[in-house]
Structures are given as C-alpha cells and as structure tokens.
C-alpha cells in the first residue's frame, strides 16, 4: 500500500515568539517538524514494520525551510518526499485543495495528517483534504488498525471516545496517544540524504489564492495578578475563596 504523511514545520513549542507591528516575528526561532505530524510518520512506519508492504511518502506544502522537517520524516524512515514549495501562506481549505492534487496523483491508500497544527492552531487540514479527495476521515485518532480495505480506529469524540470503521482510502488525523515517535537515528539521518525529495511548484498543481487573509497578529496575554497567598492551608484556602467570591467566579 501507499501511505502519505503530511508534514508541517512549526516553531519549537518552547521557542520565544515576538510580535511586531508587521505581525509575528519568527527570526531566530528554532523550527521543528510538527509533533502531531510525527505521530503520523511513526504510525506509517509501524504499519510497515507490522509486515504490511508499504511505501511511505512525506508530502509538505510550505516554504523552503520546510525541507528540514521533510528530512526529519525521511530520517525517521519515510521512503521519499514531495515538497510543494511556496513562500505564500494559504489557509487550510486552500492547502487541502493543493495537497489533494498531489495525493490524488500518487494514488495513495492512506493519508496521515497531524491532528492540530502548532502554528495556526488549526485542526482543519485533515478533514478538508479528505473532502477534497472524496475520502472519509477520522480525526483525533488514538488507535489505528488496518485490514485489507478498511481502517478501524479509536478516536476522541465530543464526549469520550468511539470506534469508527472507514473504507480505504481514508484520511486519519493524529492525536497524542497514537504512538510514541522514534528519534531519527544518526545513521538514518545520513541515509536520508540520499532519498528522493521531489520539488513541485504551485504552477505544477494549478496555483491558488488564499481564502483567508491575516490582517493582524499580536501576542496578547492576559495580565495576571500573580498573587501568592500565604498562610497555612486552611488560612490560604479561606483567603482564596474570599478572593474568588470577590471576583464573582464562584
């Protein structure tokens, strides 16, 4: 079977981001493969290691710097990669249409997508790509089991979790708990250098115009009181309750 993993590169969760008049300043920030995408790559590898003959392709839509995240996926064990390279930013719906063209051409059986992006805080890409491909999808997936032509998953639903059975081809978006991604080992990093990384341009997939424009970005954190309440547990608790009552929140 053919498995495609969608890869994004995002600021390291611990990176300090700054906001300027022009928006978010990412200069000097360390970028990493999105942790939610790593679950996808890891899952694809585990499917192959379980004995299923599978080709694993990492596909990314994004600027040149994404190459590093793509290399990480290759170093983890993906066989080859396709980078739809553009410096333009697109909303997830537009991204889905572009990616669907790449995925469609590869005639994949399974598409693994990160459950939620750590930069745009979006959970839309998986479902939107499924719609663009005409495939079913499962999101927030914590367990995945494949049969010849279907996927049985456990995923987080509104309340609790539920089991779904989806005919293949299908889109699966990841959730923490699906697996514990491996480190790309040094030998595999070196091997990844020789793996194919195909570049596509927007023209190759027909181009696109974003449906959403970002007008403004600012780091807006609530000012917190940072009040430390002293005293023994009982005194502290009583004082805390008084404060919360004054704030009219309990």
């Amino acid at each position: 079977m053919k498995i495609i993993c969608i890869i994004k590169q995002v600021p390291d969760a611990e990176a300090r981001i700054r906001s300027t008049a022009a928006g978010i300043d990412l200069e000097g920030v360390t970028f990493v493969i999105d942790g939610m995408d790593e679950y996808g790559v890891e899952q694809a590898l585990r499917i192959r290691e379980s004995g299923v003959e599978a080709e694993i392709i990492a596909v990314a839509l994004g600027p040149k710097r994404y190459e590093e995240a793509i290399r990480t996926a290759l170093a983890m064990g993906a066989d080859r990669a396709i980078h739809l390279e553009t410096e333009e930013a697109f909303d997830p719906i537009t991204q889905a249409k572009l990616l669907a063209k790449v995925v469609g051409e590869e005639a994949a059986d399974l598409l693994l997508v990160g459950g939620k992006e750590a930069d745009w805080d979006s959970a839309a890409l998986g479902a939107a790509t499924a719609e663009a491909l005409g495939w079913p999808h499962s999101d927030w997936t914590t367990e995945l089991e494949l049969t010849a032509n279907s996927a049985k998953v456990t995923h987080d639903a509104d309340e609790g979790s539920e089991v779904l059975t989806l005919p293949l081809p299908a889109v699966i978006t990841t959730q923490q708990g699906l697996n514990e991604p491996r480190y790309p080992t040094l030998p595999n990093i070196m091997k990844a250098k020789r793996k194919e990384l195909k570049k596509l341009s927007l023209d190759d997939v027909g181009g696109a115009v974003s449906k959403i424009v970002i007008l403004k970005q600012e780091i807006q954190t609530r000012e917190r009181l940072n009040k430390i309440i002293e005293g023994d547990p009982m005194e502290a608790a009583q004082q805390l309750v008084k404060l919360l009552q004054q704030d009219k929140v309990i």
């Binding site: 360390t30 990493v32 190459e67 590093e68 290399r71 990480t72 170093a75 480190y183 790309p184 080992t185 040094l186 990093i189 070196m190 990844a192 250098k193």
Partner: peptide, 9 residues
C-alpha cells in the same frame, strides 16, 4: 540540512 538534523537529534 543533515548537520541541522544531527544538531536537532
């Protein structure tokens, strides 16, 4: 790219 990968590992 490989050197950055090694660094991040």
């Amino acid at each position: 790219d490989e050197q950055r990968q090694i660094q991040s590992l």
